[in-house]
Design a protein around this nucleic acid. Structure first.
Lengths: 145, 145
DNA sequence: CCCTATGGGTTTGATAACACAACTCACTCG
DNA sequence: CGAGTGAGTTGTGTTATCAAACCCATAGGG
């Protein structure tokens, strides 16, 4: 992997979830799928690659692999806190895809606890105002190695 | 590309920005870098791959390529509305990397217009409450092809 | 005029990642 | 006994990625 380029947590994050199928596998686990065959079918990933990605996500602490049956041995994949923390990112990506990539209506729609169709908004945790690229400036910037 | 798997805007989004270096190139453009050589150096991507990614991002309407000098011909890459709409996702990914991947302090820190260090929170656009994976259920779900 | 530098890429040849089908293992069920 | 299920692994190609070198247009200095 690249040891060069800007020191950056986006790059670090992508080392963990940036490969093909990683985020889609995660999507399925967060949707409630727990079994290998199901994740394979719903993502469309080939089985060998999926096995490698799941291993990596488990190693990185994003998923937990648990044996739910001894005879025969059967496993399930569960989301950790790390995976749940990534869900807003996934939802943001989905919303961006809905708006700027897809044509036609969104294939997946969520409802929030408040009863309304979910649309995610990113706000400043301190003041509650939306994030706009112009209302933002860097205090510190990762160095380029 | 995968013609199989669940019909999903996350998958569609990743067709555009899911390859290696795409999001890092976008990060640089959103940070204000506009020139090929600078983006190449700051990301660490090899020049051929970067050229291919930038072309793809331009084709997808995420970046705009503009000639800013005729003799000799020189180009710059500018963020479109689509790119700006992706910034919260990038910030979310960065924050997740800060918390769950990195050890040590965040390499990059932003300040919001309100004067405080920026921490992004994802909330429901309707009720303003934070998104939690348990307070969410699917109304419609993309079919698996 | 020649040499070097700059910006923005392409080309080349080696290496790594990925895709697909088939196979294994450990069972259960009929 | 044979078929089926879940969770992968193995074998064999194809495609993508990598680093380094090269190309083109032009500017500036000697």
């Amino acid at each position: 992997m690249a040891a060069r380029g800007r020191e950056c947590s986006i790059a670090d994050a992508l080392e963990v979830v940036g490969e093909r199928w990683s985020l889609l596998a995660l999507r399925e686990v967060l949707l409630g799928e727990r079994r290998f065959n199901q994740i394979a079918e719903n993502t469309g990933a080939s089985r060998d690659i999926l096995a490698a990605r799941l291993r990596k996500l488990v190693d990185a602490g994003v998923l937990e692999k648990r044996q739910y049956e001894d005879h025969p041995p059967r496993f399930e994949y569960l989301p950790t806190e790390s995976a749940k923390a990534l869900q807003p990112v996934l939802l943001g990506l989905m919303q961006w895809g809905d708006r700027f990539v897809r044509q036609g209506p969104p294939p997946t729609v969520y409802e929030h606890d408040c009863g309304e169709e979910l649309h995610v908004k990113s706000v400043c945790e301190h003041c509650g105002e939306p994030i706009a690229s112009k209302g933002l400036h860097t205090v510190r910037l990762g160095a380029v190695r």
